[in-house]
Amino acid sequence: MPLIDTHLHIVDLEALRYPWLDGAEALRRTFSYQSYEREALRCGITDALHMEVDVDPAMIEAENAYVEGLSRARQTLLRGAISACRPESVDFPAFLERQCANPFIKGFRRVLHTERDDLSEGALFRANIARLAGTGRPFDLCVLPHQIEKAIAVADSAPDVSFVLDHCGVPAIKDRAEHPWREAVSALAKRPHVAAKISGVVAYADGANWTVADLRPFVEHVIASFGWDRVVWGSDWPVCTLNASLSTWVAATHALLAGCSEGEREGLFHRNARRIWRL
């Protein structure tokens, strides 16, 4: 069965600048596409979307060009890129027009969990997000549990835009903090134009001590809330390597889905991603 990775990060310290890595020593090194591909092929990944890595804002378009260049250099798993963006900027409309002219750009993301909580409340931010309507490009919501309320407000402000919640809403799995995360996820899932990624949640588990049982209540709640037609899978490589290899996360995913029907697995593994990102 095809397995589409909707959340791959490539980090190249020689090609691009990543200011946030100065405070993340465990990840402050190059993670090449070649390293990812070698393991991805071994565990059955057939296609991948590159997720922006919060580069220096001046290098956003350079990152897109870098990833597209990798995809053209030889046959790869790369099927497109989800671009960084700055909806709070007056330059966003022109930026959006340039990116939408390129079919390799499949969607957009503005990392919100590292920013002030009210960033997404600005009138310009909301107006620019609404510009995504009709482009066929979803917007990824990367928020912490206490910010899901803000994500709901963004989604409500742009009902004609498709949204995707990253990483199950970043639950504190290590602390077993299901509340109020559960209630917030359920509320967001009531918006039919929002989907969710079962992506890299091992990064929020208890170091090397986690088990599939630790992940299960969080993953199952997201699937139950959104339904099998609005969930997709992602690795969040290399962030997942903080607590597990790519292969281990794939194996854990298969364990979490044991007993599910073939149709349900098809939706999560590839069918929904093909529809959402028009692959």
Rank of each mutant, 00 (worst) to 15 (best):
G80C: 08
G80I: 06
G80N: 11
G80H: 07
A81F: 13
A81I: 15
A81W: 05
A81S: 15
I82A: 09
I82C: 07
I82L: 15
S83N: 10
S83H: 04
S83A: 15
S83R: 05
A84M: 14
A84R: 06
A84D: 10
A84K: 01
A84H: 13
C85L: 11
C85K: 01
C85D: 04
C85V: 07
C85E: 04
R86P: 00
R86Q: 06
E88T: 01
E88N: 07
E88F: 02
S89I: 01
D91H: 05
D91I: 02
D91Y: 00
D91A: 10
D91K: 04
D91R: 08
F92S: 05
P93E: 08
P93I: 05
P93N: 12
P93D: 13
P93F: 10
A94G: 02
A94R: 09
A94H: 07
F95K: 00
F95H: 05
F95V: 03
L96R: 09
L96Y: 04
L96M: 08
L96S: 06
L96V: 02
E97N: 10
E97R: 09
E97D: 14
R98L: 03
R98D: 11
R98H: 01
R98G: 02
Q99I: 03
C100D: 15
C100S: 14
C100A: 14
A101R: 14
A101W: 05
N102M: 07
P103M: 10
P103A: 04
F104P: 04
F104R: 12
F104D: 12
I105S: 00
I105W: 02
I105E: 03
K106T: 05
K106Y: 06
K106N: 11
K106E: 10
K106A: 15
G107K: 06
G107Q: 11
G107S: 11
F108H: 06
F108W: 06
R109L: 10
R109P: 05
R110H: 11
R110I: 03
R110E: 08
V111S: 03
V111P: 01
V111W: 02
L112N: 09
L112C: 13
H113S: 10
H113N: 10
H113K: 08
T114H: 15
T114S: 15
